[in-house]
Amino acid sequence: MTIASVTPTPNPAPPAIEGEAPWRRVVREFAKSWTAMFGLLLLVLVVLIAIFAPLLSPQNPYDLASLSIMDNRLPPGETGWGGMTYVLGTDGQGRDMLSAIMYGLRISLGVGVVSCTIALFIGLAAGLAAAYFGGRVDTIIMRIVDLHLSFPAILIALILLAVLGRGIDKIIIALIVVQWATFARTVRGAALAERRKEYIEAAQCLGLPQWKIVFGHLLPNCMPPMMVIFTVEIASAIALEATLSFLGVGLPITQPSLGLLISNGFQFILSGQYWISVYPGIALLVLIVAINLVGDQLRDILNPRNAQ
């Protein structure tokens, strides 16, 4: 969502202006790659669809009164009893797949963004503390992070959900627990590099309070790499949530994310009713690829090694 607000400048900016604002450089560099712009366009489109799903979708998939069980498992393009044409077909309950996907996007994207944002804050706090205080604090925090990252995310999430049970709050907790360590490690690396620089020393010499140095000076300069990780982690959070929901330990049936829609369609695959699984999967894929395209380009721009 943060990324979606980075809009391109209408005209290509003149090359390398002295004293150009950093965000302007990011925007100008970003617009250079057409694949990244394509990704951004897709992402904006998907986010808009997710936000305005109730207005755009032909049917409210949760309103049982508007569903007709007679219309169940209709292939794409078929017209149902009520005279409604189902562009992407219907599922086992006679729900319009297009509407279900739009609402599913909402849940998937929401879960990914919310969990990543909270994990980002926890990771920032832990990573900054480790880098700024060093010594024993650093050792303890980084030992926990290392231990954490030596286990695959899916395993940790699976264990947690086995304990916590199902539910949208529980899967968000599981995703936060899985992801904070990645943020913590990244911000620590960035902060350690920044800490050695002269402006921090200058701030310390001026006798600024510690919190002001950490949050006013250190934190803003650690943000570029965090932006990249944040983008990419949203994609992996969405994929992980979909996987867990598919395995039946994620979201409950009342909150059908894309993963759950695919899972519901899986039972009909063998009888050739492909559309119930395939279309939500394509929506998921488009979402993840769009985020990754944007993230890749951001990485190229914000990587200090590539900056002029």
Binding site: L247, I269, L270, Y274, L285, I288, V289
Partner: peptide, 22 residues
């Protein structure tokens, strides 16, 4: 290879079944 990273594992499995088995 980018697609390989982005494809959710479970959905890609379902697609394999759909293509090669069904």
């Amino acid at each position: 290879s980018i697609l390989g990273f982005s494809l959710p594992n479970f959905w890609q499995g379902i697609m394999l079944i759909l293509l090669f088995s069904v």
